[in-house]
Amino acid sequence: MRPRRRMTQNYLIIWVDGKIDENTEDYRNTLVQLHDVASEVKPCTTREECVEYLNEIDDGKTFIISSGALGQSLVNDIHGMPKVDAMYIFCGNKAHHESWAKEWPKIRGVFTSIKPICESLKKVARHCDHDNIPMSFVSKQTIVGEDGSQTQNLDQLEPAYMYSMLFKDIILEIDEDDKKPMKALVAYCHDQGVSKQQLNYFQNEYNQKSAIWWYTENIFLYSMLNKALRSLDMEVMVKMG
């Protein structure tokens, strides 16, 4: 049994097309635009490969971009999966595929260009991040005495609440002039598939804004930090702090 895949953001993109050719300029340009939306983009050339990859994902949401040729059969296999949040049909004959695509609620539309798909994906991804912002509450801890009596222990906090406080401290107290952690963070994010365009923008402009401003900027930081907090991934939180 293969190990489950851990996502670094709350979502990823799967691009399904039997005609994907990694040696073409069109493929590379499309991949660059998709990486501007999500750090993890998985190209698949068959329906079976897509389904197998979906079954290996541990949590989070998936956005599917499929060719018209594979989309009609693929949607039958994956539309009912909770982890599939949205689907897009990317084809050369819009009118031909709109007739069946409109029958499936998760299909956001049929497109002949990647640009409007990416514009829609950015909005959907932002909503996904908002939906996954963790909320922590301090619950009362009950202590049972030897005589069976129960009292409330106010000295103990939920682990999730403590991690949330640690996260807040990291964001508010980050040393904006320390270049060593910046290089380590950029290297880590590069390994996770974050686009060079976003990393260059972040690295070149970082000192011009506050850490909180960057957290709210519509780039990889917002999603990656929220995912780390939701899953209590201390490795990611420390690297970003």
Rank of each mutant, 00 (worst) to 15 (best):
P43D: 05
P134N: 03
A95F: 11
N218R: 13
N218V: 07
N218T: 11
D175R: 13
V37G: 00
S39I: 01
K61V: 07
N76W: 09
V32K: 05
K61W: 06
M162T: 02
S67R: 01
C44S: 05
L225N: 06
I219L: 14
W15C: 03
E146N: 14
N55I: 00
L70E: 01
L166V: 13
H79P: 02
R230Y: 12
C128S: 08
R28E: 03
Q33H: 09
D59I: 06
L157I: 02
N207V: 08
Y53S: 08
S99H: 12
V194L: 07
V37Y: 00
D178F: 00
Q152Y: 14
N23S: 13
M135E: 10
S139V: 09
M81V: 06
N204V: 05
P134M: 03
F167C: 03
D147C: 07
R28T: 04
S231H: 08
T30G: 11
L221Y: 00
Y161V: 05
M135V: 15
Q152F: 15
T46K: 12
G148D: 13
V238N: 12
G109C: 00
Q156W: 10
Q208H: 12
I107C: 00
V194F: 06
R108W: 03
D59F: 08
I117D: 03
D175G: 01
R108F: 02
G109E: 01
Y11E: 02
I170S: 08
D177F: 03
A211E: 04
A160S: 10
G109N: 05
D77E: 15
E158T: 06
D36A: 06
K83Q: 14
T46N: 09
G92R: 11
L232I: 04
I212D: 09
N218D: 15
Q72E: 15
I143D: 08
T45G: 04
E217N: 14
D191F: 12
R28L: 06
L172F: 10
L12Q: 01
K61C: 08
S164C: 07
E176W: 06
R47G: 05
S66W: 02
R4P: 01
V110M: 02
Q33S: 11
A69E: 12
G68P: 02
L225F: 10
D233F: 05
A160V: 05
S99F: 14
L54C: 15
K123H: 10
S39A: 15
S210D: 01
I107D: 00
A187Q: 14
H190F: 12
S164M: 06
L31K: 09
P82D: 11
T45H: 04
G148C: 10
F167N: 01
R230K: 15
H190Q: 13
